[in-house]
Design a protein around this nucleic acid. Sequence first.
DNA 1: CCCTGATTCGC
DNA 2: GCGAATCAGG
Length: 188
Amino acid sequence: MSWTDERVELLKKMWGEGQSASQIAKELGGVTRNAVIGKVHRLGLSNRATASATAKPEPKAKPAAKAEAKPKLAPKPAEPVKAEAEAPAPKPLPARKQIIPAGQPLPPQPSANEISPEALAKVSEIEKKAKKLTLMELTERTCKWPVGDPATDDFWFCGLPVQQGKPYCEAHVGVAFQPMSSRRDRRR
DNA sequence: CCCTGATTCGC
DNA sequence: GCGAATCAGG
């Protein structure tokens, strides 16, 4: 796939919205997050108050097996001792919070359903092992099952590894997606 | 281990 | 220009 105008536009848009490179890559399809990041840099986009900033001002030389390459960058002409007055003036831009796409349907509260007792037991059990993530720590791979009362401190998301393609871990998938055969016995 | 972006460099 | 490999950090 190539970077058509439309794709670039979407890239810009999403990047601007604070979407991660991997998310953008998935959205675009046919590209990896590396491709996205590479493109972002080439486009001159870049900083955006990243989710996990990684500033690496340290020009490190790798012990590359190959011969030495040309020192193509030397953007530092000279540095006359400057007067102390000049301050780099850091710009603390307001970091933009990452938006968590609630791509999947949020969990129905485990209510008085007729769920297999085993499943429920399983749930209570795994809830002890839950990672207890906060909303912002959720990813596409973490179980999004909410536990506790959102109005209290005692609220968190399961956070265990999700089942492929599902928003929940195995245990919670069990109670979230019922075979819908529970009350099938409604013969008429 | 999961994730994030950054950089390098052969293509 | 592109992006995989790699790096660096949370």
